[in-house]
Amino acid sequence: MPMPDPSNLPKDLAPIATRLSAMLPGDWRALRPVVDRAKCVKCAVCWLFCPVQCIAEKPRWFAADMSVCKGCGVCAQECPQNAIAMVEEDAA
């Protein structure tokens, strides 16, 4: 039988999606990682451990992508230089 265009199907028939919704976890964050750039030695331990892989490399330090970072604090816990502090979102 002819297959209809998915975008023309009744909206409430079957649970499908034809547009990408990123649903990034940055919305959930209660604590934000703040990097002390003077302490960061670019060892990349935070980059290795980040469970959502949101650490990006900058010229002289590493920093989290705030649209993706969910504020779990793993990077701050693992940083050998103690260069990352978790700061409450509302306080920032």
């Binding site: 297959m3 265009d5 998915p6 649970p15 499908i16 999606a17 034809t18 919704s21 649903m23």
Partner: peptide
């Protein structure tokens, strides 16, 4: 031919 996500959140 009809790409879609089945049962998205």
């Amino acid at each position: 031919a009809r790409p879609m996500a089945v049962d998205p959140l």
